[in-house]
C-alpha cells in the first residue's frame, strides 16, 4: 500500500503543499484549509516539521458516529455523518486532524498525492 514519506530536513517551508491541498479539496486558494501542515521552528533552532496523517486508523476506531470509513488503507471522513465531536482530533496520535472555522468537520489527508507534485525540494514522496 502507498504511503507518504516525509523528509523534514528537506522542507523549506514554502507552503505550496498547503496551498494545493486547499485548492484540490475545497477549490479554494487557502492554505489554512489543508490536511498537511508545516510547523516553523524559528528563529531557534531554524527547522521545519511536516505534519500529515499516516493513515493509522485510530480516528476510525474512536469515531462514535461511524463517520470515518476505510478504503484501500485510506481513512476518509464523511462530513454528512460527522458531528464534529472532536474525539478523533483529541485521540489522533500525530495531531494531524486539522480544523478551520468555516468547516464543521476535521480536515484529514485522503492520500491524493497532490502535495507530492508541487514539493520541489522533494520533502514528501510516495513510499517505494
Amino acid at each position: 500500500m502507498k504511503s507518504l514519506v516525509l523528509h523534514h530536513e528537506r522542507c523549506t517551508g514554502c507552503s505550496l503543499c498547503e496551498l494545493i491541498c486547499g485548492l484540490a479539496h475545497f477549490k479554494e486558494n487557502n492554505p489554512k484549509k489543508s490536511a498537511i501542515h508545516i510547523e516553523r521552528k524559528f528563529p531557534v533552532p531554524g527547522a521545519f516539521e511536516v505534519h500529515v496523517c499516516n493513515q493509522c486508523g485510530r480516528c476510525k476506531e474512536v469515531c462514535p458516529t461511524e463517520a470515518i470509513i476505510e478504503r484501500d488503507g485510506v481513512y476518509l471522513i464523511d462530513p454528512g455523518k460527522c458531528t464534529f465531536c472532536g474525539i478523533c482530533i483529541d485521540e489522533c496520535p500525530l495531531d494531524v486532524l486539522f480544523t478551520h472555522k468555516d468547516l464543521s468537520y476535521p480536515i484529514k489527508c485522503d492520500l491524493c498525492g497532490e502535495c507530492i507534485q508541487v514539493c520541489t525540494p522533494e520533502a514528501i514522496h510516495w513510499s517505494k
Partner: peptide
C-alpha cells in the same frame, strides 16, 4: 548554513538561514 528556507509559495528557496557559532547569532 542551518537551513534552506523559502518565502510563500516559492520553489526556489533562495534564503540561507544561518547560524554563527562565533557570535551565537541566527
Amino acid at each position: 548554513l542551518v537551513r534552506d528556507k523559502a518565502c510563500f509559495a516559492c520553489p526556489l528557496n533562495c534564503a540561507n538561514y544561518t547560524f554563527s557559532k562565533k557570535y551565537g547569532t541566527y
